[in-house]
Design a protein around this nucleic acid. Structure first.
Length: 382
DNA sequence: GATTCGTGGCC
DNA sequence: TGGCCAAGAAT
């Protein structure tokens, strides 16, 4: 046992409600935690994910970026397509950003894709094509923060550095009884300190990897948000949440906020089997993706349609609602046909446009709800 | 420090 | 159905 029952609750780690400094577990506790986690990972952890069993920093980096705020099952097919198209960092750096965006389309958080491309170019141009091995140097690169840098450094280079992702926050909050919402800066700082204190003393590469992977595996497979399997957990006997039946309350939930609702009108302008796409600005929602021309209301969309060369009806399609993390978007699609003799050119506005046959849509990075809309149209237009 | 960034799965 | 959030980072 790595912590006595008498001292456990009194020394609940991290910040307390009064805001006092973090109270770290005793040294014996820290050593016991890592050793037990490593042993558990080797026996019960995950060992066959596509980005495991390699020390190639490129493959590890790519997986870590894709896995930011994204579940494993979602990432797997994207990861396979990326590796097939861009087998190494030089290939990725040399590719047009548009190709990267097209492969990323549907995965979300598109700044990750833009930073991925910038990072690949920085590795080639500033590091001779090889990822730097230190946490600090990795964290200087675009899209790599403190936690991702630690993950890459530990898996690829055996660095003794801790991650702090959603899995780790959940495990630490429960095992050590860390109160407060982990998204709050004060709580997160306390968790970083706690996580650092729990690192294994061993600098053996295999131990370091197993420890980092164990943190992720425990949170992803046993210490899950909904119904944690405490009966199988190596820390069940010492877990504050398990001892007090507070698994449902730890970690503390994000404070609730009302999600605003926005509404937009989208134009499906057709020329035979092709539709007109418009490139979105590089930042903001769906930044750098190709989408349908938009307007803020019905009238403005009709004006845009006619300016683009539509001379017939602008007809409604079935509306759809898309839910983002921080707002809901009601989409009002309208469809129109390019006038005969107008030709497949448009009076260009500020944005870049392209006529794309629906069968070629895969070559363009298109947001998920727009992609669904166009997929639903494919039968009727062809 | 609080916001802004997607999408899909789960209950 | 709708709330919640996942291998977070940048601003």
């Amino acid at each position: 046992m790595y912590v006595s029952s008498s001292s456990r609750r009194a020394s609940s780690a991290g910040a307390d409600a009064s805001g006092t400094a973090a109270v770290l577990p005793a040294p014996a506790v820290r050593a016991g935690f890592a050793a037990r986690l490593i042993a558990w990972q080797r026996q019960h952890g995950r060992h066959d994910l596509p980005w495991q069993n390699t020390r190639d920093p490129y493959r590890i980096w790519l997986s870590e970026i894709m896995l930011q705020q994204t579940q494993v099952s979602t990432v797997i097919p994207y990861y396979a397509r990326f590796l097939a198209r861009f087998p190494d960092v030089a290939a990725l750096a040399a590719a047009p950003l548009d190709d990267v965006m097209a492969l990323w389309a549907g995965l979300g958080y598109y700044s990750r894709a833009r930073n991925l491309h910038r990072c690949a170019q920085a590795v080639v141009e500033q590091h001779g094509g090889a990822f730097p091995a230190s946490v600090d140097a990795l964290a200087e690169l675009p899209g790599i923060g403190r936690s991702t840098a630690a993950a890459i450094a530990s898996f690829a280079f055996g660095a003794r550095a801790t991650i702090l992702d959603g899995n780790v926050k959940r495990v630490l909050a429960r095992v050590f009884g860390v109160e407060g919402f982990p998204g709050e800066k004060r709580i997160e700082n306390a968790m970083w300190t706690l996580a650092e204190s729990l690192l294994p003393s061993s600098t053996n590469d295999a131990d370091v990897s197993a420890y980092t992977q164990g943190l992720m595996d425990l949170g992803a497979t046993l210490c899950v948000r909904g119904k944690p399997e405490c009966g199988r957990c190596p820390f069940a006997a010492d877990c504050v949440a398990n001892a007090t039946g507070r698994q449902r309350e730890l970690p503390a939930a994000r404070p609730k906020k009302a999600v605003p609702r926005r509404r937009t009108w989208m134009l499906v302008l057709c020329d035979g089997d092709a539709v007109m796409l418009e490139k979105r600005p590089p930042s903001g929602i769906w930044g750098g993706l190709w989408s349908l021309p938009e307007a803020a209301d019905e009238t403005a969309l009709a004006e845009r349609a006619h300016a683009f060369g539509a001379n017939g009806a602008v007809s409604p399609l079935a509306p759809l609602t898309h839910t983002f993390t921080h707002f809901k978007l009601d989409i009002e699609p309208r469809i129109a046909e390019l006038g005969r003799g107008v030709g497949a050119t448009v009076a260009a506005g500020d944005a870049e446009t392209a006529w794309v046959p629906l069968r070629d849509i895969d070559a363009y990075g298109v947001p998920a709800p727009v992609r669904k809309l166009l997929d639903g149209l494919q039968g009727s237009l062809l």
